[in-house]
Nucleic acid binder design. Structure first.
Lengths: 235, 235
DNA sequence: ACAAAAGTGTTAAGTCTACACCCATGA
DNA sequence: TCATGGGTGTAGACTTAACACTTTTGT
């Protein structure tokens, strides 16, 4: 059969916004672009989609090539298609966002890949429309986290309730009463209490918890409502 | 400056899922594909993205060309990029969904464009991965409508509360107590009661309401909670 | 012994759900 | 006059928000 021979063909890229949490604030991972134009400027992890790979495959490949990350939470965000978003040549880019446990990869990212973490409040100027992508990703992660337990993807396997609370507080830029917070999270049935304690944050130590993976997958789509007044959310 | 000359270029399409509500059930609009392959089979409204238009522009153009629709609610849904989704040649497609007042366009759509409405429960076989797109759009509209007042886009300018309730019930495939429903919707401050009544549905007649546009835009992002138990929702 | 963070329970306010009757009208 | 759909209020259950003290332990 014939091909669609009369149609214009386009450059297609994928860009990845990688979120991490270091115990204090939400951060995103940036690299210095390795080629012209804008060589040396801060950029999301991006690359062109090849002929024989799907978009999901492309995002995974690019993330792996540029950061070594593999098998992480990765979700399509939005496709950015303004005609002049890349000044060299028109390129449509599908943005993905990833959530990772920052500590698991910290050294590898900086040593091997020269990627750097920037707190969301303090992002440097980015190339092209990457700033817009970051904004969209921030909105999406907030929106989704208000309803679904995705933020666990940012924590290590074992974590404490105070750590979890700080994460929620920093994502939503709010403060939550710790009594109410712990009641809520425990009521979800998503956490398994371990006997071990984390003594790093205090003398007394805080109990470690683990995700109950079964309940996690089962309840992933259920609404959560960890956040008292989710009025400021945008889609 | 140079172009990205070594990179593969791709065919890029846009497909639109158009939702309408006829007072009984949610429907989507389909057309019979006008060219090979799969000529004559049911299809979403789709077309290729041209060199000098953004994705948003492309979706608006294609919708207008194939249905005459213009200025309607249109939102990007997801980009489908599997390598073999179009058997002729690899094509990446960004899906958009539209919400329209079905009665406003009914005649024009069938007479001029030979587009047909199908109830969501009874969609014919569709070309390529259009079935997946429809599924994704159904999920998205439910999800978003559970939280934001988008369903008003499906109603005429003046509508009654019973009409609105039937719409919500059919989108969520549930039944809602009418006393609680009207309390809820009125409490949002989104509705303006008119003195006129709709006598079509009953002898007594039901009051018409209009959207309070100011509050609508202001509260669009606020969570609503019209739906009693939104547990079955997916993103 | 004291500083610093962890852990826990109660009460009042607010919200949600379930539920039933009267109204207006055209046929 | 009666059948049909429209419109409205309340009480009990439940959920949420606000709030403070005790525990543990390293220094």
């Amino acid at each position: 059969m014939h091909k669609y021979s009369k149609q214009t063909r386009h450059l297609l890229a994928v860009d990845c916004i990688v979120f991490g949490f270091d115990g204090e604030s939400l951060k995103i991972l940036l690299i210095q672009r390795g080629f012209q134009p804008e060589k040396g400027n801060w950029s999301l992890m991006g690359g062109f989609v090849q002929q024989n790979e799907s978009l999901d495959q492309a995002s995974n490949r690019i993330l792996k090539e540029l950061t070594g990350l593999d098998g992480v939470y990765l979700e399509q965000l939005h496709t950015f298609g303004d005609t002049s978003r890349d000044p060299i040549e028109r390129t449509i880019s599908t943005a993905y966002f990833a959530l990772i446990d920052i500590h698991k990869y910290e050294k590898q990212l900086s040593d091997d890949y020269h990627a750097e973490w920037f707190p969301l409040k303090n992002i440097p100027g980015l190339i092209f429309d990457h700033q817009d992508m970051v904004e969209a990703a921030k909105r999406r992660i907030r929106y989704k986290a208000a309803l679904h337990p995705i933020l666990f993807e940012l924590l290590p396997d074992k974590f404490t309730i105070p750590q979890l609370q700080i994460l929620y507080e920093s994502v939503f830029n709010t403060t939550i009463d710790k009594r109410n917070f712990s009641k809520r999270v425990l009521a979800t049935g998503l956490l398994i209490k371990l006997s071990e304690k984390d003594k790093a944050g205090s003398k007394r130590g805080a109990y470690y918890y683990q995700l109950n993976k079964q309940n996690y997958y089962a309840k992933f789509q259920a609404f959560l409502n960890f956040i008292p007044n989710p009025d400021t959310l945008l889609l």
